[in-house]
């Protein structure tokens, strides 16, 4: 359906695309510019800062009242731990759903479908009370602990991911494990040494989606984490900016740039895999 372009056809196509490029880049460039603008205010900012400086970035790392760099570190650490655990746990569950036949399999599959529809944040009240009482027995998992927050994230992560992974496992022929087991491997070894390496693309997708989701989550984090230095970036950045755009714009911009970096890097690294995952139904949080 495509034909060689006439001069006019070529011009309007590039013009339209450039308009969308401008739309896509406009906020990003504007924030990059603000982050290097020493004025730290929304007033009178121009796209190319007059006296570029790193003051705002320095503030991100040194502010004692708003430990923004610490928030980013918290978010990255919580995201990495959560995503790793989720990938491991879901891989096990999805493998069982894909390969074994057992009682409750169908119910389990339906349940994980149904449950992913329930927005976990809306059960925040009961989750808060639950974590409170868990904390009475095991203080390390209580309110205002990162471990407790990670535990809550682990619960909410199963539904979609289990389905994504099961779908992928289904496409790997089971003859591979069968031949391994004839050679004397246990079912667990067959899973661990044959299937998991083959499933690396989907593991990467689940890891990335989970990392982005955890990194951006702020409802449960804002309810469960109470002290400023333990905030995640998604909670802390809101706490920092409140409605003070006029007076904190520059530092906010620097924090945004630094805070977006981990995701942008991961995204660029795993982009190819991600596209596969997206077309099979995942939605980024």
């Amino acid at each position: 359906m495509y034909r060689r372009h006439t001069l006019f056809g070529s011009i309007w196509r590039h013009a339209v695309l450039l308009i969308f490029v401008a739309f896509a880049l406009f906020p990003i460039l504007w924030v990059l510019s603000a982050s290097f603008n020493p004025a730290n205010t929304l007033v009178g900012q121009s796209l190319i800062p007059r006296n570029p400086s790193l003051d705002n970035y320095r503030e991100v790392f040194t502010s004692e009242q708003y430990p923004i760099a610490g928030w980013i570190r918290n978010s990255v650490v919580i995201g990495l731990i959560t995503s790793t655990l989720v990938v491991v746990m879901t891989a096990f569950a999805a493998y069982a759903f894909s390969r074994f036949r057992f009682r409750g399999r169908r119910t389990g599959l339906f349940a994980s479908l149904l449950i992913q529809v329930f927005p976990q944040m809306l059960a925040a009240v009961s989750i808060y009370l639950l974590v409170l009482s868990i904390g009475r027995i095991i203080p390390a998992l209580g309110i205002n602990t990162h471990a407790g927050l990670i535990m809550v994230y682990l619960g909410g992560a199963m539904g979609v991911n289990a389905w994504l992974m099961k779908g992928y496992f289904d496409t790997i022929p089971s003859s591979l494990e069968e031949s391994a087991m004839i050679d004397g491997a246990s079912p667990f070894q067959a899973f661990f040494m044959i299937i998991l390496p083959l499933a690396r693309p989907i593991l990467a997708v689940v890891f990335l989606l989970q990392f982005i989701g955890t990194y951006s989550e702020f409802i449960l984090a804002s309810i469960l984490i109470t002290s400023t230095e333990k905030y995640t970036l998604a909670v802390g950045l809101q706490f920092f900016i409140q409605d003070q755009y006029a007076s904190r714009w520059g530092v906010f911009a620097a924090a945004s740039v630094l805070g977006a970096l981990p995701i942008v890097i991961l995204f660029t690294l795993l982009q190819k895999n991600l596209v596969t995952g997206l077309t099979s139904g995942a939605v980024k949080g």
């Binding site: 900016i241 906010f252 977006a260």
Partner: peptide, 18 residues
């Protein structure tokens, strides 16, 4: 054109509010 998708949505939303 894919770039907006790589920025965490909560950061983008706060930027747009500004």
């Amino acid at each position: 054109l894919i770039l907006p998708y790589a920025v965490p949505a909560f950061i983008s939303a706060l930027i747009w509010r500004g």
